[in-house]
């Protein structure tokens, strides 16, 4: 069994891709295809993580930041959409770069859902939080992100984008009803949650930004972590 694991996994993956494509093209049934596409989007991340020679210090650093993000979600479990995870992912990506942000976001979603319950939303959350980290890392050297106001605006925008990406997973289950009306209705019904998320991002970023960036930059310099990325 162990010897054949790579061919076995590749064959299984190809098989599922084929099934998803036929289901989507023949029967207009898109749920499976959407999951396959998400897996394809996250796949390069894990391949890169496996292939590059990563220092044990960097690996542990990523684990600590993901765990802090995951833990920070637990006290706010009672309040929907209010959590500091996005803010922590943005700050970590700001200091350690896009790739680290992507990994931290995806890991935080995966691990915190061990406590909140895995579901069909897990891959979507991994993707969304990963994208939060990735974009924050890409923009970290621009003047926009360097200013405090710019970073708060960035967090506010991502609060809404996050909710919009999460809405896709059930809009996609109604291919025949797809119209701007449905999209508008779905986005209107999630508006309050998205607003809560956006405002909580602004709040947490405004109180965390200064001190956390200082702490993390000190660690980066002291130990020479993730300097390339």
């Amino acid at each position: 069994m162990l010897r054949f694991r790579y061919p076995l996994f590749i064959a299984l993956a190809l098989f599922v891709v084929g099934l998803a494509l036929t289901a989507a093209l023949q029967d207009r049934h898109y749920i499976l295809l959407s999951l396959v596409l998400l897996a394809a989007a996250l796949f390069p991340l894990f391949v890169r993580l496996e292939r590059r020679s990563i220092e044990s210090r960097e690996l542990v650093l990523l684990a600590v930041l993901s765990a802090v993000a995951a833990v920070s979600r637990i006290p706010f479990a009672a309040l929907p959409s209010v959590q500091p995870v996005s803010a922590i992912v943005i700050l970590s990506a700001y200091v350690f770069g896009a790739e680290a942000g992507l990994i931290i976001g995806a890991m935080a979603a995966l691990v915190s859902n061990l406590y909140f319950g895995q579901g069909p939303w897990t891959p979507w959350q991994m993707f969304s939080w990963g994208m939060v980290g990735l974009t924050a890392g890409w923009l970290r050297n621009t003047r926009w992100m360097r200013s405090k106001i710019g970073m708060l605006v960035f967090g506010f925008i991502w609060g809404f984008l996050f909710g919009w990406i999460m809405n896709i997973w059930y809009i996609i289950s109604l291919p025949d009803a797809f119209s701007w009306g449905l999209v508008a209705a779905a986005y209107a019904s999630s508006f309050y949650f998205d607003l809560a998320h956006a405002l909580s991002n602004v709040f947490f970023l405004s109180i965390l930004a200064g001190s956390w960036i200082k702490v993390m930059e000190r660690f980066r310099k002291k130990y020479g972590l993730l300097q390339r990325g």
């Binding site: 993580l49 496996e50 690996l59 600590v64 765990a67 833990v71």
Partner: peptide, 22 residues
């Protein structure tokens, strides 16, 4: 764990850190 050892180690460490940090 055998297919993706580094990712598995990262996930395991993160899972282990959660109760420790609490």
């Amino acid at each position: 764990g055998t297919v993706a050892p580094k990712s598995a180690l990262l996930i395991l460490m993160t899972i282990r850190f959660v109760p420790l940090f609490q």
